[in-house]
Computed example of a mutant assay.
Amino acid sequence: MGKSVFLGMSGGVDSSVSALLLQQAGYEVSGVNLRLFHNEDLGEGREKTCCSLADAEDARAVAAKLGFPFYVFDFSQIFRDTVIADFVSEYEAGRTPNPCVVCNRSVKFGALLQRALALHGDFLATGHYARVEQDGDTGRWLLKRGMDRSKDQSYFLYMLTQEQLSHTLFPLGGLHKTQVREIAEQNGLVNAKKRDSQDICFAPDGDYAAFIERTAGHPSPAGNFVDENGRVLGQHKGFVRYTRGQHKGLGLSIEPPLYVLDKDPATGAIRLGPDAALWTQTLTAEKINWISVPALSGPLRVTAKTRYSQRESAATAEPLEDGALRLTFDEPQRAVTPGQAVVLYDGETVVGGGTITK
């Protein structure tokens, strides 16, 4: 008998091709679709663009075609208690969270991996574009970028522990997206041409503020826009509607243009200033997870990025006494935002990462 693997299936082409590749490699595959919402979680009249019933049926159809078991696990409670609760509380505290990182940590590689192991599975697999390898010299499990740099998702996976990595498979890590779609078409998979979802799954219309207000049960408090000296410039429409670096939607006719610099949850004020005030060379991060090294004992040269969509930049990482991290970039970075993830790389390998605090 081959090794048993539980595969997270969203109904998209990536997880479907992952299933095919795992079968071809001799694994015993079981497909799992996660139910993360109930209709009332989204608000009346709102439709999801992912994780829908249609997506689950696409995943089920692929499982039936390839001839392996398919299950639906209701993880809506843990999703609500972790991902959604964190999203709302972080925004209300003036930070800008990354819910995909929290979901990977708490749900996919937390609760789902635990369930897979409890059901005597050997591995959990997903359709992420990333790679897992074991270092032959140190024995540590390494997280590496996907070969398709335009789809690489290692940024969202920096929190994986050694134990989690040892039980994780990423079948698409060595492929490009074009190859994945070709494999799907050649094998007659129903979702070969299905478009990728780009949205946060619980706010598919992109209106995070409305979702937060519905979930919290009250409107986000209005308050003052202030300049760098505290002078009132006008009124904003709700504390959670703005994030660092934002310029559009401020509703102020002021020249030169102003941008959100920071937010004060105690007063509800949002401080604005020129673009030049958004640039910094140093950040501090906490909740650090190290992957390629057990810990940081001294300065380390890395490349790093503070949001998924940017190219990483050269920097020096230094440990702080309380387990936090100071990162000093060679060149100033724009709009480094508390609540977001900073991920450190050494070439193709993820060194580690954490949550930006300032």
Rank of each mutant, 00 (worst) to 15 (best):
residue 142 L to Q: 12
residue 238 G to L: 11
residue 19 A to L: 03
residue 110 G to M: 07
residue 254 I to P: 00
residue 283 L to T: 00
residue 184 A to C: 06
residue 297 S to E: 15
residue 230 G to N: 07
residue 130 A to V: 02
residue 240 V to M: 07
residue 106 S to G: 00
residue 324 A to Y: 03
residue 75 F to N: 04
residue 91 Y to F: 15
residue 306 T to M: 06
residue 319 P to L: 07
residue 228 E to S: 07
residue 248 K to R: 15
residue 47 E to Q: 13
residue 92 E to L: 13
residue 326 R to Y: 01
residue 352 G to Y: 00
residue 322 D to G: 03
residue 168 T to I: 09
residue 95 R to L: 13
residue 212 I to M: 09
residue 109 F to I: 01
residue 161 T to K: 11
residue 260 V to L: 11
residue 102 V to R: 13
residue 215 T to H: 14
residue 196 D to K: 14
residue 327 L to F: 07
residue 143 L to H: 03
residue 283 L to S: 04
residue 3 K to Y: 11
residue 99 P to H: 08
residue 322 D to N: 15
residue 243 T to I: 10
residue 119 L to Q: 15
residue 212 I to T: 01
residue 161 T to C: 09
residue 139 G to E: 12
residue 4 S to C: 06
residue 192 A to C: 06
residue 321 E to T: 11
residue 213 E to L: 11
residue 226 V to E: 10
residue 166 S to A: 14
residue 272 L to S: 02
residue 321 E to Q: 14
residue 354 G to K: 06
residue 118 A to L: 13
residue 162 Q to W: 10
residue 72 V to Q: 14
residue 37 F to D: 11
residue 223 G to W: 10
residue 94 G to H: 08
residue 144 K to M: 14
residue 261 L to I: 15
residue 225 F to V: 03
residue 297 S to V: 10
residue 7 L to Y: 08
residue 87 F to I: 08
residue 99 P to T: 05
residue 223 G to M: 12
residue 200 I to N: 00
residue 205 D to Q: 08
residue 128 H to D: 03
residue 275 D to L: 07
residue 217 G to S: 10
residue 243 T to S: 12
residue 125 A to R: 04
residue 246 Q to T: 01
residue 146 G to R: 01
residue 244 R to P: 05
residue 253 S to N: 15
residue 214 R to M: 13
residue 317 A to C: 13
residue 259 Y to L: 05
residue 310 Q to W: 13
residue 109 F to N: 02
residue 305 K to M: 05
residue 63 A to W: 04
residue 333 Q to A: 05
residue 311 R to Y: 14
residue 102 V to S: 13
residue 224 N to I: 07
residue 19 A to S: 13
residue 215 T to L: 02
residue 42 L to T: 04
residue 334 R to G: 04
residue 234 G to I: 08
residue 344 L to V: 02
residue 6 F to L: 15
residue 340 Q to H: 09
residue 177 K to F: 09
residue 233 L to W: 12
residue 339 G to E: 07
residue 203 A to L: 05
residue 32 V to T: 03
